[in-house]
Design a protein around this nucleic acid. Structure first.
Length: 364
RNA sequence: CCCUACUAGAGUG
């Protein structure tokens, strides 16, 4: 069973939910019971993909098989709701998110019904779900409830609260939460620094972000590559492209490898500051580093080239994108059409439009 | 306390 659990972990790390489920099925068909570990693992895979239906189906299977449940299973289930809330901010909108949030609280209720005691992670997951749904008040209530049950808020708690503040646009509260986190002894938690820096994005507050960076270093916490991305983003918003690259240099000096996120962040910083050539260079560096830019990165760059009347570059990026195994999506097509319009490329626009119809891509 | 499972984390029209 342990071997299978590890196999499933590998599938999950590779973001291959179908393969993970297949591994689970294989085990089941060989007459073995799936254990709590494996179910939790599988449910978590659903959470990261935002597949709530599958997540709850697995939970039902688990009950049917009379496998013991524990707080981790319920945390994973709450996180299934939370994951779908994150996925659905594009399409289904606010109402769907609130329904999912209620479902998360429903899980919380159910677990207590069956006599499983919530632990800190359960409340943390609830706070995160509420934050993602933009319900800061709800997140604060969950925090209160957590404290009423004598659970100590930890780094996860404060980081989730900080993100909830960001989502709700409450920067003032975010700063208070950050200081509460430090006072509560979470000064060794990298997450709180990252979340606190992210809260300096709107309105842009580079000074505070850099202070948090300094706090972190003073407290002897080693940053990761994501924290640097958060900082670089704030630098870019403060029109400090120079600082963004300086931070990247710091990062390299600390032996951290830039990731696709690092490069995308830098590309966006350049685009937002009208440094399109530099953006293109960073994009190339990303490819050279063997990291594949995703559709977001391509679309942003294609759009920027289109706006800058660099039609040829926009088109060649679309080609690169396809060669890189990515499907142009509605954002890509919109960007290309926009580029055509600006460059008076009626013929190409017509072609593109036909392709969109073929692929049934709908724009507004 | 750690071993195989849960909880935070960006960006595109």
């Amino acid at each position: 069973a342990r071997t299978y659990n590890m196999l499933v972990s590998v599938c999950i790390a590779a973001r291959d939910l179908p393969m993970a489920l297949k591994a689970g099925m294989m085990l089941k068909e060989s007459g073995k019971q799936l254990d709590t570990f494996l179910y939790t693992n599988l449910i978590t895979a659903c959470a990261t993909k935002g597949d709530a239906d599958m997540g709850f189906r697995l939970y039902e299977d688990m009950l049917a098989d009379r496998v013991a449940t524990d707080p981790r299973v319920y945390t994973a289930l709450i996180s299934v709701c939370s994951g779908k809330i994150r996925m659905s901010d594009n399409d289904s909108g606010r109402r769907g998110q609130l329904v999912l949030l209620e479902r998360a609280f429903g899980v919380f209720h159910d677990m207590q019904e069956v006599g499983v005691k919530p632990d800190a992670a359960v409340w943390n997951a609830l706070i995160a779900a509420a934050g993602r749904a933009g319900q800061l008040q709800r997140a604060l209530e969950a925090l209160q409830d957590m404290q009423d049950h004598h659970q100590k808020p930890d780094g996860h708690t404060f980081a989730s609260l900080l993100h909830a503040c960001c989502q709700a646009g409450d920067q003032i509260l975010a700063h208070k939460v950050y200081h509460n986190a430090l006072d509560a002894g979470c000064d060794q938690s990298l997450m709180i620094y990252d979340a606190a820096i992210s809260s300096c994005q709107s309105p842009v507050d580079l000074d505070t972000a850099m202070q948090i960076y300094a706090d972190m270093q003073r407290n002897g916490v080693k940053p990761d590559e994501r924290l640097y991305s958060s900082l670089m983003e704030v630098a870019g918003q403060a029109q400090r492209v120079d600082l963004a690259f300086e931070l990247q240099a710091n990062m390299l000096a600390q032996g951290l490898q830039p990731s696709q996120v690092t490069y995308s962040t830098l590309v966006m910083v350049c685009i937002d500051n009208q440094q399109l050539d530099k953006a293109g260079q960073v994009h190339q560096l990303c490819i050279q580093a063997g990291l594949h830019p995703d559709a977001y990165a391509y679309n942003a760059l294609i759009n920027a080239y289109g706006c800058a009347l660099q039609f040829g570059k926009a088109v060649s990026l679309v080609q690169d994108m396809v060669r890189g195994g990515l499907q142009p999506d509605q954002f890509t097509f919109t960007a290309v059409l926009n580029a055509c319009q600006r460059a008076n490329e009626a013929e190409v626009a017509f072609e593109v439009f036909r392709l969109m119809q073929q692929r049934k891509i709908i724009v507004d």
